Amino acid sequence: MTRQPAVGELLRGWRERRRLTQLSLSLQADVSARHLSFIETGRSRPTSEMILRLCEELDVPLRERNALLLAGGYAPAFPDHGLDDPSLDAVRSALRQVLEGHAPNPAIVIDQHWNLVDANSGLQVFAESVSADLLEPPINVLRLSLHPNGMAPHIVNLGEWRAHLLTRLERQVTQTGDRAAAALHAELAAYPGGLDSEATPQPHDVVVPLRYRHADQELSFLSMTAVFGTPLDVTVAELAIESFYPADAATAKFLRSL
Rank of each mutant, 00 (worst) to 15 (best):
V206K: 14
S197T: 15
T176K: 03
A182C: 01
A152V: 09
N157A: 13
A189C: 07
D178W: 06
H164G: 01
R143I: 08
P209I: 02
G177D: 03
W161N: 07
V141M: 15
L165E: 03
T167V: 01
H204V: 13
S197E: 15
A180C: 03
N157Q: 09
I155L: 08
N149D: 15
L135T: 08
T200R: 10
A190Q: 12
Q172L: 10
Q175I: 04
A190C: 12
D178K: 01
P203N: 08
A132V: 12
R171V: 03
A215Q: 14
L195C: 08
G177Y: 03
L135C: 11
A180Q: 13
P148Q: 09
G177F: 03
E170R: 08
R143P: 01
A180H: 04
T176Y: 06
T167K: 02
P203S: 05
L210S: 00
I155A: 02
S197P: 00
I155Y: 00
A180N: 05
L142W: 03
R143H: 08
T167W: 00
N149R: 14
L210C: 05
M151N: 03
D133H: 15
R143G: 01
E198G: 10
R171M: 00
D205V: 07
E136V: 14
A186R: 15
P203T: 09
L134A: 09
V206A: 15
A152Y: 10
R162M: 01
H154D: 01
L142A: 04
P153K: 11
A189S: 15
M151G: 08
R171N: 05
P137K: 10
P138K: 14
T174W: 06
E198N: 10
H147F: 01
R171P: 02
P201F: 14
V208P: 00
G194S: 11
P209H: 11
R168A: 14
E170G: 11
H204C: 11
L165F: 03
V156W: 06
L169C: 02
P203Y: 07
A152F: 09
A186S: 14
L158A: 04
M151C: 13
G150Y: 11
W161A: 13
V141T: 15
P209F: 10
Q202T: 15
S145H: 02
S145D: 03
R168Q: 15
L184D: 11
R211G: 00
P201G: 12
A215M: 07
A189K: 05
H147M: 01
P153Y: 06
G159C: 04
P148F: 12
V207C: 06
H147G: 02
L144I: 03
I155E: 00
Y191R: 06
H204G: 09
H214P: 01
L169M: 04
A132N: 09
A181R: 06
A189V: 07
L158K: 01
Q172I: 00
T174R: 11
A189M: 05
V208G: 05
D133W: 12
R168C: 11
P148D: 12
T200V: 15
A132F: 07
N140S: 03
A215S: 12
L188E: 07
